[in-house]
Nucleic acid binder design. Structure first.
Length: 556
RNA sequence: UGGGGGAUCGUUCAAUGGUAGGACACAUGGUUUUGGUCCAUGGGAUCGGGGUUCGACUCCCUGUCCCCCAGCCA
């Protein structure tokens, strides 16, 4: 990864303070704690680069910890995808220890026993409806559960019976005894354990009870010796619980710090909704190149560097923000500009015939692979009488400042020759089928020393020497800046999917050099955009995804 | 009508009582064998009202707006 610029934000301020107020052995420790219930998206990348970045900046460590406390929604496939995504973003060696909350279930259970013994937790027999009702709301304080004053011995016995599997789902819960009249609803005797007789992807059938997030998270942090437990803003209301458990247990107490998560225009981030897109097959899986998932972005042609640079440019703060999609695309272009081979590809071809070029002649023109970096070297490309050019590079009635081909206009065929357009042909429907030109033999390579001014330069491929390719052009998945806004019910957002979010062109023509392209290799199709060879490609069929179009100051 | 947070160029992040600055976006010009890249220039903001101060984005008072919270999800 490229040079790391130092972060400077409200969190680094806290950390630097802590370092200053501790002894020389003090090392910070952070963690990235995903729940394995879906694929990672670019919002998670913000958390990843923050937590791992902080650890690196202050010489501490960062763990990847799976918060796998709800087996109903979690599975091993998600774990594997998350590990591979984090590795891709950070590099294999930089992901730290891989840990699982489920490894601490025994320890957590001991802590629960301890809390019961201290009189701070009780087993509640109320139904979930009763618990909900008795919790009250913003304006009405809660009422105590009739089971709140059970004796410690009774609670111990009941809780052990819960653990033994003597009760069915929903029959009992273990709750913390905090206060049913707290203004913070989270503190109204939060549930610590619920009965869930389901198989866990790591602990199997060992546990019929599973800890709730609020109970588990602080314990996980404490057990791992996390110094700074960074989470998103919606957990601010939960910090008092986090602190309460750790204080009552009297164990190592990390500090929770909240920051604003990433939000972006024209897309959605909630895993629930992303899952819906996948399940309804509105996209082609979690790694559909239109998805904001890490795997989707990877397939789209994004690089880890571009994502990191984007995230870092945003910074970290507490104010809720929505980032602009083209901010992300800027960093992709910036990175790809440096690393992508320039090649010629005609996405929407029409024939160009050079009338005065010998019928069977073929010349091999020298072409630079990347003008930004001479070490990329050069290659040869075949030039002949019949070429394909981009349909939009010819105009029957050229608008003002149209520098491309039109009858009487001279343009440069890049790395080829100067050509003047003589004529064109149309079919019965009025579509242009063929453009006819003459070339100037003195302009080989696309240059003449006579000072002639040629404003337009267009790309081309030789008909005989080009390859067919499928090209997938993507646009925003949704055509609304905020696809979830002003919806009446939860399902409606899928109606906002943009019909033009994918446009597949079956018969693009690309230069033969691309026969050796590798899956995931990045290219710039000259004058068009950045493209990546898709994993659907076979030796018989090349398939390219457009990662992002080139910027253009030419607006028709 | 409770509790918890947040308001700075169009967007995002700085400035921690001392010239409101950067990046993206936008506009204009230059370079260019990509209408790309690169370079230069420009417009553009402290939520409102009071107060403290030589001096306020920053401190105080007051008002307004936005976000989150009533899962046996995380």
């Amino acid at each position: 990864m490229n040079n790391d610029t130092k972060m400077n934000n409200f969190i680094t301020e806290i950390i630097e303070n802590d370092i200053a107020n501790n002894d020389n052995n003090y090392k910070i420790s952070t963690r990235f704690p995903p729940e394995p219930n879906g694929f990672l998206h670019i919002g998670h990348a913000k958390s990843i680069f923050l937590n791992y970045g902080l650890a690196k900046q202050y010489n501490g460590k960062c763990n990847l910890r799976f918060d796998d406390t709800n087996p109903v929604k979690e599975n091993i496939d998600y774990i594997n995808s998350i590990i591979s995504d984090v590795k891709w973003l950070l590099g294999d060696k930089n992901i730290g220890e891989i840990l699982y909350a489920s490894d601490y279930f025994e320890q957590m259970h001991c802590y629960a026993l301890d809390l019961i013994k201290k009189g701070y937790a009780y087993v509640d027999d109320q139904t979930s409806e009763q618990i909900k009702k008795n919790r009250g709301d913003y304006n009405i304080i809660g009422t105590n559960s009739p089971f709140r004053e059970r004796t410690i011995d009774e609670n111990l016995k009941l809780f052990e019976d819960m653990r033994k599997g003597l009760y069915e789902d929903g029959e009992k819960v273990l709750r913390a005894k905090i206060s049913m009249s707290s203004k913070n609803l989270n503190l109204r005797d939060p549930i610590m354990y619920r009965i869930l007789k389901v198989n866990h992807h790591r602990t199997g059938n060992k546990w019929p009870i599973y800890p709730m997030y609020d109970w588990a998270h602080g314990l996980e942090d404490s057990i791992e010796g996390i110094t700074h437990s960074i989470c998103t803003l919606e957990f601010e209301d939960h910090r008092p619980i986090y602190d309460w458990f750790l204080e009552k247990l009297d164990i190592y107490h990390p500090q929770q710090i909240e920051f604003a998560k990433l939000d972006m225009t024209y897309t959605i981030f909630s895993k629930r909704n992303l899952l819906k897109l996948v399940e309804k097959q509105l996209v082609n899986g979690w790694d559909d190149p239109r998805m904001p998932t890490i795997s989707g972005l990877r397939r789209r042609g994004y690089t880890p560097e571009s994502i990191k640079n984007f995230i870092m440019s945003l910074g970290f703060a507490k104010s809720k923000t929505v980032s602009d999609l083209n901010h992300l695309e800027h960093f992709l272009r910036e990175n790809l500009n440096l690393i992508a081979y320039r090649v010629m590809a005609v996405i929407n071809p029409i024939k160009l015939i050079i009338e005065n070029y010998p019928d069977d002649k073929v010349e091999y023109m020298e072409v630079e692979n990347n003008p930004e970096d001479k070490t990329f070297g050069s290659r040869k490309i075949a030039f002949s009488k019949e070429l394909y050019i981009e349909r939009e590079d010819f105009s029957e009635n050229p608008p003002k400042k149209f520098f491309r081909l039109a009858v009487g206009n001279e343009v440069r065929l890049r790395n080829g020759y100067y050509v003047v357009c003589n004529d064109f042909k149309k079919d019965s429907l009025g579509n242009i089928t063929e453009v006819r030109c003459s070339y100037d033999p003195e302009t080989k390579g696309g240059w003449s020393n006579d000072g002639r001014k040629v404003r337009g330069t267009i790309h081309w491929v030789s008909c005989k020497h080009s390859l067919n390719a499928e090209v997938r052009i993507y646009d925003k998945l949704f055509d609304k800046e905020n696809p979830l806004k002003t919806l009446k019910d939860d399902d409606d957002f899928t109606f906002n999917i943009s019909p033009s979010s994918i446009n597949t062109i079956e018969d693009a023509k690309v230069e033969s050099f691309l026969i050796n392209a590798e899956i995931n290799q990045k290219f710039q199709f000259l004058r068009k955009g950045y493209f990546v060879l898709d994993s659907d490609s076979t030796s018989k069929k090349l398939i390219f995804n457009q990662s992002v179009a080139l910027r253009s100051s030419w607006n028709k």
